[in-house]
Design a binder for these strands. Structure first.
Length: 1042
RNA sequence: GCGGCUGUGGCGUAAUUGGUAGCCGCGCUAGACUUAGGAUCUAGUGACGCAAGUCGUGGGGGUUCGAGUCCCUUCAGCCGCACCA
C-alpha cells in the first residue's frame, strides 16, 4: 500500500476541523503555554515558501507542548490595515476592504494546506471594527493619561489638572514635551483653552508640532522605523523633513522601563542590543553656557520721547491708532534702549536706521543693541530713513504683513532656551576645559535670536542650503559645513569668549540641539575645528591630537584647572559636582528614543476617536466606539491636501463636531493583538481579567527581525501602558522570542549566445559571448533545464537551440531575493501538491538552523520525501499494514530512546534541522533491524507527530487508536537503554589518533594506560621513545605524550 | 564609522560544548531490479597517494597533552544602526 499523502492529508485536516481538535479554552487544571506567530499582512501575492518557515517551527513547538500536557494557545490572524491595499485601491477603485478580504481568503487556503494547529475560532483582523474598537479605546486611554516620572507609571490627566489647580507646576513629576513653570494662581487665571493646550503637552497621546518624515508621493508622514536612508521602506519613495501638527505617543516616557525590561527577556543578544541602541540611554549633564550679559529683558517702560525723526514721524502717521489692525507703541524703552516702534503682543520691533553710519563705533554699538534685543526674544524689522520717506504707505503694509505672519508671542521663551544661557547636553563634562566653541543645530530656535545682523545673510543661506538637502544627502555627504553666527558665549569656568557656530552635524532632535565642542576629544568637533581653523586644546596626558581626536574615555586630565591629575572617570564625577555647586547645570539621563508619530494621512487605517471643538481635540465617548471608517468617493487626498477621510460626507461626531481626518499607523493594530487572542470575542473589554490572568503573556513568539525596532518596541510600550491601567498583568508581552531567518530565492540562469537564439550549458558558456537570462526555477530540476518546458515557457524561445553538456542543459544559479521578476518564487501549494504538507514541513526544517537566513533550494526535498515513505514502509509488509506485538529487544529500545532524548533536546533548543536528521537515523536503523514492533513504532510516531502531523495521525489510527495522536503523551526517555557495557577509546599519540581500542565501561585509568602502552599497535608510534605522560579521559580519549 | 553574526567536502549542513572533523540529506560513481524513471534497493564518495601514510574547518599567530570549538590578529561575506555630543 502506497503512501498516498494527498488523501491522508485531506482526511486529517477535515477530521481536525470537524472535531475541533485545536480548540482551546482556559483550563486551570492544566499549565498554560502561549505560542504566537507574528501575524502576516495579507498581500496580494499570497504566501511563498519562505513565509511558513516560522509558522512551521511554532507549530512543532505548540504540538510538542501539547503532547507534554500543556494547554496551548496558538492563534493566528491578520495585520489587515496597510498601504498596499490602499495603493491598489487608488489605482483600481477597488475598496481596500474587498482586496483585503480576498487576500485573507487566499492566505487561509494556503495556510490550511500546511496543516497548522491554529485555533481558528480566535482569528482576528486588525481592520475588523470589533477589533479596532479596542485600538481606539486604548488611544483614548492614552489621551486621558499622563506619565508620572516619580511613580514611573501612567496616571489620569485629571490628577495632574488637580495638581496644577492646587500647586501649579511646583513638585510636578510628569513627562512633557514642553517644560514650563507656573503657579496655581496663574493656572487658575488661564482660559479653558489655554489650560487644555498646556495639558496637551503632558498627555501620553498628544498633538504636537514636529519635524516629521513626509513622503509627498505617499501623501503621508512616516515613523522613523518606516524610513531608511531617506526613502520609505514600503514603496521606496523619497522622504523629506517637514514641520507638521501630528498625533504622537509618548513612548519616550517609558524609555527607562523599556530598557530595564530587556534584561529579563529570553531574546537574542543582537536583538536586545538593537533595542538598547534604539532606546539610547546616555548619562551626562546639562550645562548652562552663559551668553554675554543681555540687558534686553522684558522690562518695558513706556517713556514718551518727542524727538522724532522725520522718517519716524512719517511712519507714525501710517501706523498710529491701530490703523494696521494692531497696536504699535512708539518710542518704547526696552532695557537701556529706546526703540522707535514695537508691537508687544508679538514682540516685533520696527527699527529705523540712518542711511550711513558715521563711525565704526556707532555701527558696532548699533549691532550690539540689536543683538541684545534679539537675545531678549524680540524680532527686528529694519528700514532705513530714506526707504520710509520714499514710500511710507508701502512700508506700513510691509510691517502689517510681517507682524501678521509672526506667531503670537512666543517671546516669553522658557528660561532654559534663549534666556541668557545656552543649555547643552554632554556625556563628557570632564572635557569642559577643552570647549573652544559652541555649535547649534540649524533648526535650533536660538539661531534666530543669536545671529548678528552682519552674519544674517550667511546664516540664512546656510539654513536654506541644509533644508534643501534630503535626509539621504545629509547622511552621505560627509563634508564639513557650517557658518559662524556672529555671537559669542562665555565659558562657564574660564570666562573666555567662545564663538557660536551653526552646523548640521548637530541634531535638533537630540539633547538641546546645541553642543559645547571639544575638538580634542570628539572626532566630529575635531573635523569641524580643523576645517574652520578653530583652537584645539588637548586635555589628556600624552594624547596626540595633531592628526585626529582622542575619543577614548581614558587617561589623566591636564589643562583642566581643578580637574588636573584626575582620571577621566573621576573627572566626570568631579565636574558634575562643581557644576552643581556653581549652579551651572545638573546631571541628566538622555534617551535617543523619540515619541512615536501616530498620524497617517491615509484612508486604510483606524480612524481616531477624536473630534474638534474650538480647535481643541476631544475624545469620543466609549459608547460611540468603534468609530467606523466612512465610505469615500476616492482614496486620495482632497484638492486642498487634506487626508482622504476629509472626503467623507458627514464626518462629524454625534454632536456635530468635525472628526479627525488622519488615521492610525500600521503598528497601532499590532500593538496589543496578543492580548486580544486571549479573549477575542469579548465586547465589554479588550481582554477579561480572567483570560488575561490565565494566559498572562506570550511564552514563545516567532517572527522576523524586521520588527526589531518597530513593532517590538511599540508593542512593549503599549503593553506597559496597559499594565499601568491594570488591563495587562505582565510587564513584558513576549517572554521568549525566536527570529526565523529569511528564506531567499535561488534563481536559475540560462546563457543565451549574443544575437542568436542559441543557449549554451553552464560549463561551456565561457567559449561564447553570452548573456545570462533568469529562467523559471519551476522548470529546472537539480539545475538541469527541462528543455521542452522552457520552449513553452516563453513563445520567444519556441525555436531555441541548445548546446548541451553530457546530453543535459545545466543552468547557473545565484541567491537573490525571492521575487516574481527573478522567476524564483516557489509556492508552498505546489510543493504540497507534489510532495505533501508533511514533506514541506520537514524539508523547511531540514534546510538549516531556524534562525539562519538561507536560500530555498528544492533540490534536497526528495531525500525528505523518501524518508517519509520509508517511515510508512516500516508499518507495511507486502502492501498491507502489519505491526508485531512482540516485546522489543535492547537494540531496538536503544534506537528508540536515542531518538526520544535527541528530539526532546532539539525541540527545546529550536534545533529542528538536527531533529529531522535524527528521525532519518532512527528509521534507517529500524529498517535494517526489520523492526515493526508496536511498542517501538508507536512511541516513535509520537515524537514525529509535531513535525509530520498527517502521516503520524494516519499511522496512529491504523495502530488502532481512536483518539488523535495529539491526545497522547510525550514518551519518557529512559537512560537505562542507552547504557553501554564497553567504550571504544580513540588512542592518540601527541594528539593524533592512531587506532581505537575497546574497554569495558568500568575499566580504571591505570589499567587503560597499561594496556595501551603494552599494546602491539602502540609500539610503532612509541618507536623507542619514552612516553612522558599518558592522559586518560574516561569515556573520551587516551593521549600518549612522547 | 559603530555594533552584531557567519566562514567546515561539489552543495545544504552536523560535531555530545576543549576529546576520533565531516552525522543526515542532496549531488556524483558503480552495481542490482526493471513495461527505461526526476522510481526503488545495495555499495562507495574531503583532498593527495598503488599503499603505509600525509594534509585538511577563510589566512597568520597563541594557550593546551589535545582547538572547528578558547584568546590575539587579519581577510571575506551578510545584517542592523548611522553625525545621538
Amino acid at each position: 500500500m502506497d503512501y498516498n499523502f494527498g488523501e491522508i492529508e485531506q482526511k486529517w485536516q477535515a477530521y481536525w476541523a470537524d472535531n475541533q481538535t485545536y480548540k482551546v479554552t482556559e483550563d486551570s487544571a492544566k499549565p498554560k503555554y502561549y505560542v504566537l506567530d507574528m501575524f502576516p499582512y495579507p498581500s496580494g501575492a499570497g504566501l511563498h515558501v519562505g513565509h511558513p518557515l516560522g509558522y512551521i517551527a511554532s507549530d512543532i513547538y505548540s504540538r510538542y507542548k501539547r503532547l507534554q500536557g500543556f494547554n496551548v494557545l496558538h492563534p493566528m490572524g491578520y495585520d489587515a490595515f496597510g498601504l498596499p491595499a490602499e495603493q491598489y485601491a487608488i489605482q483600481t477603485g477597488q475598496h481596500p476592504a474587498i482586496t483585503t478580504q480576498d487576500n485573507i481568503a487566499r492566505y487561509r487556503e494556503q495556510l490550511d494546506k500546511i496543516g497548522f494547529s491554529y485555533d481558528w475560532d480566535r482569528e482576528l483582523r486588525t481592520s475588523d471594527p470589533d477589533y479596532y474598537k479596542w485600538t481606539q479605546w486604548a488611544f483614548i486611554q492614552m489621551f486621558k493619561n499622563y506619565y508620572d516620572t516619580q511613580l514611573q507609571r501612567a496616571k489620569p490627566i485629571a490628577r495632574l489638572e488637580g495638581h496644577f489647580r492646587m500647586r501649579g507646576t511646583e513638585n510636578v513629576h510628569a513627562a512633557t514635551s514642553e517644560p514650563m513653570e507656573f503657579t496655581a494662581e496663574e493656572w487658575n487665571m488661564k482660559s479653558d483653552k489655554e489650560q487644555q493646550e498646556i495639558l496637551m503637552n503632558y498627555r501620553i497621546a498628544y498633538l504636537g508640532d514636529s519635524i516629521v518624515n513626509w513622503s509627498p508621493q505617499l501623501g503621508t508622514v512616516l515613523a522613523n522605523d518606516e524610513v531608511s536612508e531617506g526613502f520609505s521602506i514600503r514603496g521606496g519613495y523619497p522622504v523629506e523633513q517637514k514641520k507638521m501638527r501630528q498625533w504622537f505617543l509618548r513612548v519616550s516616557a517609558y524609555a527607562e522601563r523599556l530598557l530595564e525590561g530587556l534584561d529579563e527577556l529570553d531574546w537574542s543578544d543582537s536583538l536586545k542590543e538593537t533595542q538598547r541602541h534604539w532606546i539610547g540611554r546616555s548619562e551626562g549633564a546639562v550645562i548652562h553656557i552663559p551668553l554675554p550679559e543681555s540687558d534686553a529683558k522684558r522690562e518695558v517702560i513706556d517713556e514718551e520721547d518727542s524727538s522724532y525723526s522725520e522718517a519716524g514721524q512719517a511712519l507714525w502717521e501710517i501706523v498710529k491708532n491701530k490703523q494696521l489692525g494692531f497696536k504699535l507703541k512708539r518710542d518704547y524703552k526696552i532695557g537701556d534702549n529706546t526703540v522707535p516702534f514695537v508691537n508687544l503682543d508679538k514682540g516685533v520691533i520696527i527699527a529705523i536706521e540712518t542711511d550711513a553710519f558715521l563711525t565704526s563705533e556707532e555701527k558696532d554699538e548699533h549691532i550690539v543693541t540689536q543683538s541684545k534685543l534679539k537675545l531678549g526674544g524680540f524680532r527686528i524689522l529694519s528700514f532705513t530713513q530714506s526707504e520710509i520717506l520714499a514710500d511710507p504707505i508701502g512700508i506700513g503694509q510691509q510691517i502689517k504683513d510681517y507682524v501678521e505672519s509672526v506667531p503670537a508671542a512666543d517671546i516669553p521663551v522658557s528660561e532654559e532656551i534663549g534666556g541668557d544661557v545656552i543649555p547643552v547636553f554632554t556625556t563628557r563634562p570632564d572635557t569642559i576645559f577643552g570647549v573652544t566653541f559652541m555649535v547649534l543645530a540649524p533648526e535650533s530656535e536660538l539661531v534666530d535670536q543669536l545671529t548678528t545682523p552682519e552674519q544674517q545673510e550667511a546664516v540664512q543661506n546656510y539654513i536654506a542650503q541644509t533644508k534643501k538637502k534630503t535626509e539621504l544627502e545629509r547622511i552621505s555627504d560627509q563634508k564639513v559645513t557650517g557658518v559662524f553666527s556672529g555671537a559669542y558665549a562665555t565659558h562657564p569656568f574660564t570666562e573666555e569668549p567662545m564663538p557660536i557656530w551653526i552646523s548640521d552635524y548637530v541634531l535638533a532632535g537630540y539633547g538641546t540641539g546645541a553642543i559645547m565642542a571639544v575638538p580634542a576629544h570628539d572626532s566630529r568637533d575635531y573635523a569641524f575645528a580643523k576645517h574652520f581653523n578653530l583652537p584645539i586644546i588637548p586635555l589628556i596626558e600624552g594624547c596626540d591630537v595633531s592628526e585626529e581626536s582622542f575619543d577614548a574615555k581614558e587617561g589623566i586630565m591636564i589643562n583642566s584647572d581643578f580637574l588636573n591629575g584626575l582620571t577621566v572617570e573621576e573627572a566626570i564625577k568631579r565636574a558634575i559636582e562643581e557644576i552643581d555647586k556653581k549652579e551651572l547645570g545638573y546631571s541628566q539621563v538622555n534617551y535617543r528614543i523619540r515619541d512615536a508619530i501616530f498620524s497617517r494621512q491615509r484612508y486604510w487605517g483606524e480612524p481616531f476617536p477624536i473630534y474638534y471643538k474650538d480647535g481643541m481635540p476631544y475624545t469620543l465617548s466609549e459608547s460611540e466606539l468603534p468609530l467606523q471608517l466612512p465610505p469615500v468617493d476616492k482614496f486620495l487626498p482632497t484638492e486642498s491636501g487634506e487626508p482622504p477621510l476629509a472626503r467623507a460626507e458627514n464626518w462629524v461626531s454625534e454632536d456635530g463636531y468635525p472628526l479627525e481626518t488622519s488615521t492610525m499607523p500600521g503598528f497601532a493594530g499590532s500593538s496589543a493583538y496578543y492580548l486580544r487572542y486571549m479573549d477575542p470575542n469579548n465586547n465589554l473589554m479588550l481582554v477579561s481579567q480572567e483570560a488575561n490572568h490565565y494566559w498572562r503573556n506570550v511564552d514563545l513568539y516567532i517572527g522576523g527581525t524586521e520588527h526589531a525596532t518597530g513593532h517590538l518596541v511599540y508593542s512593549r510600550f503599549w503593553n506597559k501602558f496597559l499594565v499601568d491601567l491594570g488591563i495587562s498583568c505582565e510587564e513584558e508581552p513576549f517572554k521568549k522570542l525566536v527570529n526565523q531567518g529569511m528564506i531567499q530565492g535561488r534563481s536559475n540562469f540560462v546563457y543565451r549566445i549574443k544575437n542568436s537564439n542559441r543557449f549554451v550549458s553552464l560549463n561551456l558558456k565561457d567559449q561564447y559571448d553570452t548573456t545570462p537570462i533568469h529562467v523559471d526555477v519551476n522548470i529546472v530540476h537539480h539545475d538541469v533545464l527541462d528543455i521542452e518546458a522552457f520552449k513553452q515557457w516563453n513563445p520567444e524561445y519556441k525555436n531555441a537551440e541548445f548546446i548541451l553538456e553530457d546530453g543535459k542543459y545545466i543552468c547557473g544559479w545565484a541567491v537573490e531575493k525571492m521575487s516574481k521578476s527573478m522567476f524564483n518564487v516557489v509556492n508552498p501549494d505546489d510543493i504540497v501538491d507534489k510532495y505533501g504538507a508533511d514533506t514541506l514541513r520537514l524539508y523547511e526544517m531540514f534546510l538549516g538552523p531556524l534562525e539562519q537566513s538561507k536560500p530555498w533550494d528544492t533540490n534536497g526535498i526528495d531525500g525528505v520525501h523518501r524518508f517519509l515513505r520509508r517511515t510508512w514502509a516500516l508499518f507495511h509488509t507486502n502492501d498491507s499494514f502489519r505491526v508485531s506485538d512482540e516485546e522489543p529487544n535492547l537494540t531496538e529500545l536503544k534506537t528508540l530512546h536515542k531518538l526520544i532524548q535527541k528530539i526532546s533536546y532539539d525541540i527545546e533548543h529550536f534545533s529542528f534541522n538536527t531533529s529531522v536528521s535524527a528521525f532519518m537515523i532512527c528509521v534507517n536503523e529500524l529498517t535494517s533491524l526489520k523492526c515493526n514492533k508496536r511498542a517501538i513504532l508507536s512511541e516513535m510516531l509520537i515524537c514525529l507527530a509535531p513535525f509530520a502531523p498527517h502521516i503520524t495521525e494516519e499511522l496512529w489510527s491504523r495502530l488502532g487508536n481512536d483518539k488523535t495522536i495529539f491526545d497522547a503523551e510525550w514518551p519518557l526517555f529512559n537512560e537505562e537503554y542507552l547504557k553501554e557495557d564497553t567504550f571504544t577509546y580513540a588512542i592518540s599519540f601527541n594528539g593524533k589518533v592512531r587506532y581505537t581500542l575497546e574497554f569495558s565501561a568500568d575499566t580504571d585509568k591505570t589499567e587503560i594506560e597499561e594496556t595501551v602502552l603494552n599494546h602491539p599497535d602502540s609500539q610503532k608510534w612509541i618507536a623507542g621513545k619514552t612516553p612522558k605522560k599518558v592522559i586518560v579521559v574516561p569515556k573520551k580519549i587516551v593521549n600518549v605524550v612522547l
